[in-house]
Design a protein around this nucleic acid. Sequence first.
DNA 1: AGCGATGTTCGCCG
DNA 2: TCGGCGAACATCGC
Length: 260
Amino acid sequence: MPELPEVETYKRYFASTALGQQIDNIKVKDDRILKVEENEFINTLQGNSFKSVTRHGKYLFIECNSIFLVMHFGMTGDLEYYHHNEEEPAYTKVLFEFTNNYILSYISTRMFGKLDITDNMREYIQKKRLGPDALTMSYEDFIKSLEKRTTNIKTALMNQSIVCGIGNIYSDEILFRSKINPLTRINVLEERQLRQLFSNIKDVLLYGIEKEGILSTYSDKFLIPHRNQEDECPLCKRKIERYEILGRHGFFCPNCQKLH
DNA sequence: AGCGATGTTCGCCG
DNA sequence: TCGGCGAACATCGC
């Protein structure tokens, strides 16, 4: 499921369940999900406990034994914490079994997620060239990130090196609320628009977190409930349009989001 | 049955 | 080296 609001929801879920639990055993059901060698992965974590969890964009960094377990969820990742008497969730790739008889399942239906290990969170973020976290960045961070870029604003918002945490669905929502056409080149945006955009990034993501990323509960005033069906614009009632960019498809209102 | 999918990475080109 | 772009990746549900 995950863009930033979903990953923030996973973070809170993790914090209220697996955090602080001692890892009794780790089962790797499919080692293709691991970015490090399986033995190293297991030996580093087993016997220790999760001390803290931090989110940067769509990544979670979980402190354990003075290193960090890095979780990324791809398009179809999930976490489930359950009692060992209960059934193992479908598409479980890695199981963390705790001494309290509970188990955390790392789920990845389509294998796009990844688990990694790092001893330095900051270096890891730098090495992957991840931009500032979309939720916590300042306006100055945002502007600095966009500098020297020539691409369109939709591509920029989805580029994790520019801003970290926004994907296909939320970028559409943010642009819709900002009344900016997705194909607008960054360099033609005026300061007023950039400030508006920045503030809408925060508002949309915060709303998403409040809703725990459950799209079906989003207000009808949002673009999100009108995706996939060629619906009408919740503002002007004209037909929204489907478009394609970077091999992804999105939606926008050609009337409210004019290109200039 | 084929296509699309809330993501990242890699290789190519300028 | 860097930015932009498109294809590849793996798998399942509609």
